[in-house]
Design a binder for these strands. Structure first.
Length: 201
DNA sequence: TAGGCCATCTGGTCCT
DNA sequence: AGGACCAGATGGCCTA
């Protein structure tokens, strides 16, 4: 439905040009070929999210497109109008997909115990904390079984004795704050494993 | 103002 | 064949 509305704002190319005959030169990284999409991206972003207006919604850049290579499509016999419509529909699907992904991130944030911050956890922080949370819980289980701990956590006080778990942790600028959260997991889990199942909200 | 984070568009590839 | 998934690119917003 929305895609139909968006179609109305699309700058139509020549009517019913067959793709087979067209040489589709994909616009080159933001500079070329944007004009025809401005109307589309502005209206679609606005209507779809009610949030940001995207003056330029990014440009095709993957594969050979980035080098401005000329591509000739195989027989498809799709009109330009039809092609535009399909593109708008897949844009819509992609938006919905990303929204559902964000919803999942939000749900994950809610179940991860972490120190309350003014701003919400970023995606990378959320994933990292979730991983650490799982590791900490695994350690607790191992401990309860009398087994050796599977994972080790870095000690914030002295970074010398314990290795960082991943390369990502070594390069992540938010490592310090996350380590605080990690320590909280560790201390909490080791003293009161049952508490960690309580939502931090 | 630079850098981080994010939403969005886009085309290629994979999957059903 | 069409939809889902993915990665690259871009621009906006926010913060240090």
């Amino acid at each position: 439905m929305r895609s139909l509305e968006m179609t109305a704002t699309w700058h139509e190319e020549e009517e019913d040009v067959e793709v087979e005959e067209m040489e589709l030169r994909k616009h080159n990284n933001g500079n070329n070929g944007e004009g025809g999409r401005d109307d589309l991206t502005e209206s679609s972003s606005d209507e779809a999210t009610g949030k940001k207006r995207r003056k330029h919604g990014g440009s095709a850049s993957s594969g050979s497109a980035s080098s401005g290579v000329t591509i000739r499509r195989r027989k498809t016999c799709i009109s330009a109008r039809e092609r535009n419509l399909r593109r708008l529909e897949s844009n819509e699907r992609e938006r919905m997909r990303m929204h559902s992904l964000n919803d999942a991130f939000e749900q994950l944030r809610e179940v991860i115990p972490h120190i309350k911050m003014e701003r919400k956890l970023s995606k990378i922080e959320t994933l990292t904390l979730a991983k650490n949370y799982i590791m900490a819980l695994t350690n607790v289980i191992c401990e309860m079984r009398g087994e050796e701990k599977h994972y080790t956590f870095q000690d914030v006080e002295s970074n010398s004795d314990v290795e960082l778990e991943t390369e990502e942790q070594q390069t992540n600028p938010t490592t310090a704050r996350e380590q605080n959260n990690n320590n909280m997991y560790q201390q909490n889990l080791e003293s009161h494993p049952e508490n960690t199942m309580v939502n931090s909200r």
